[in-house]
Design a protein around this nucleic acid. Structure first.
Lengths: 208, 208, 208, 208
DNA sequence: AATGAATGAGTATTCATTCAT
DNA sequence: CATGAATGAATACTCATTCAT
């Protein structure tokens, strides 16, 4: 009787299943994904999958949650603990983060939110509270810190932190729909950050 | 008075059906929309719908096409025939167009492209060729015209006309997902246009 | 206003339609044939077709009837009026008739009777009474005439005239299913007739 | 006592389903048979049926195959292993086999091949290769064996083994269409075999 | 815990038939 | 007579979910 090479540990199961589900959703969307297929990808029987997630919708929600929250946590923590100047944050870690989004699993989650959001209001609420709000807060905090220490002049941008991540969002979706070659996303994001910083710093040094 | 079971109105049928289909797709997405429901909304029998559109997919494509192309035509024509300055175009008609998008049927089409695009490559190609390319060309033309007559300095923006419409796109999707109250889309769009124009005109007059 | 080259005459319509129907049934069978298609082949609108034949089934029955009865009439008349000997009939007109069946419209009708008969008992009865019975009678008459004038010895064949046309029937169906090249139908039919005549004439000339 | 909603019996399922399908096809033909009905007859849900047979057509083909091949195998084996004389084979096992066909499931299969063959060319090919060819070979072998050991004289029948089974085929179809009472199939088949054997043995003992 | 056989409600599509014109 | 737009019942097939083992 051959014993399994690696005894699967129960604790990893949910994670393995949501990973498989994300991959499946990425390829076929929510409606287009069969629970059977997710189970097969996860190397698990359908019955077991239903032991962990009571419905397909529940699985969907778990996927959404498990993929975005950690990233947002990292972003918020990073902004709070850094000793970089505001501009350095924007041109450094934020720029890097934004460039990494197109083509990443985040893109998949974004697409799912767009296409399925209307049917899952509680998920939208969750996403708004735990992702969008916290992300926007982190951005707003950064900008206001810049204003307070004289890097930036006061502008309406403080109230519209969306302005900063727009190109990342745009790139994510554009890449998703039209393919990776269809847009130079790095350049778009860099240029946009540059433009906004110019605006935030305007008249700097215009003397007199 | 029983309503007539048969009513002839051949000419308008396709339009009536695509209108109904857009509404249905808006509410439920592609997969979530039943052909039966579209027919009912259009006040037409399922059989007749199939007389005009051979499959649900065909109907879907017709919807996408019939709603976007006219708007792009108008945009392109507007840019070509106007005698406004480049900045006036950006702050006038373009701004107005962009503000009108969130909440309009275009939003629905955008969502459909995002969620269903992967499954309909020919539709993506069609959209890229007939909507994105032509729209981007119109924007690029406008910016370059501004550069040529001295309004704007030469910048990388000429190569990235996407920079201009990003906030409209962002607003459309944000509104779609999080609802109309979740973002001041007008302000976002205005501010962004303002920021970009500042960038395009930067050193104007700094001289001496 | 160009006038139609040939004014279609009303009287021919039913015939034109059953012709078209036979062709359609031949290609697709009964269930596989669309009324629309029959109408198109006949160069007639669907509505008009329904003016002549109240249902698809009615059309089907008309087709069956219109194609077999004339041939049977000819066969019966031929047998009754001929002055050939019995053997001459078998080796002459009957052989010729049988050879002509495979590949002819009769084959189509036979297939339709086989596949659809169970669902149309009245048609089966009609066919039995008007085709099979009369055909068998003609054959029996021929054989018995041969017996009476000493050409043949009395055998059970008189009671089983089916024995004579079996190879034609077999050839019709075989050709229908396996294609025209799959069997030398002429040889099969000739040989069979030869065998039967040998049997009918057996001890002829065995002296004593 | 409510019956169990779930019953496991994996091994027999395909057989149970093809049996039910044969019965359904026998009654209503291919097009006239609803998959739902087959499932109900088999005491199985539609979904399970589709687990075993991907489409209705596939089920149809499985039915055809599973019912004819075993019989042909038996025929071929019988001919090869027997120590009967050729005539004894014809008058014994072959006669018996042929008499058993009218009214048996084989009749159903024959009808299905006739009515549906045109739409399933691969099935026709399969049938030709696995049923017709092998059956004809067995018959030819028998006749030639008879010729070789002096029972029969050499005739064209060796090349037309179809001559032998014709009456069985005819009886099958006739019974199918016109009902069991319409023809004395046993007598037809016996007489025909008799006639052919007479032909094969002619002149035997005609001495001089 | 784990499996996968079994279920059946749900849906796109077809096509005979009707009837306003 | 003639047309073909319009109807809707009928049906193959899918897939989330359940449960005997």
């Amino acid at each position: 009787m051959p014993e399994p090479r690696y005894q699967r540990r129960k604790e990893d199961r949910p994670q393995e299943i949501t990973d498989a589900a994300l991959a499946a959703f990425a390829e076929n969307g929510y409606a287009g994904t069969k629970v059977d297929d997710v189970a097969k990808r996860a190397g698990v029987s359908k019955g077991l999958l239903y032991l962990y997630f009571k419905t397909k919708e529940e699985l969907f929600k778990a996927v959404i949650r498990s993929f975005v929250v950690p990233r947002i946590d990292a972003l918020v923590a990073g902004v709070q603990t850094t000793d970089l100047s505001a501009e350095e944050i924007l041109r450094g870690p934020l720029l890097k983060l934004m460039k990494s989004l197109p083509g990443s699993p985040v893109g998949v989650v974004v697409r799912l939110m767009i296409s399925e959001g209307a049917k899952h209001p509680d998920l939208v609420t969750y996403y708004k509270d735990n992702v969008v709000s916290r992300g926007m807060d982190a951005l707003r905090t950064t900008i206001e810190r810049g204003v307070q220490n004289g890097e930036f002049r006061p502008t309406v941008v403080s109230e519209l932190p969306q302005l900063l991540i727009m190109p990342a969002f745009f790139s994510v979706v554009f890449t998703l729909v039209f393919g990776p070659q269809s847009l130079d996303t790095d350049k778009l994001i860099e240029t946009h950050i540059d433009i906004v910083i110019h605006y935030l710093k305007k008249n700097e040094g215009t003397a007199v």
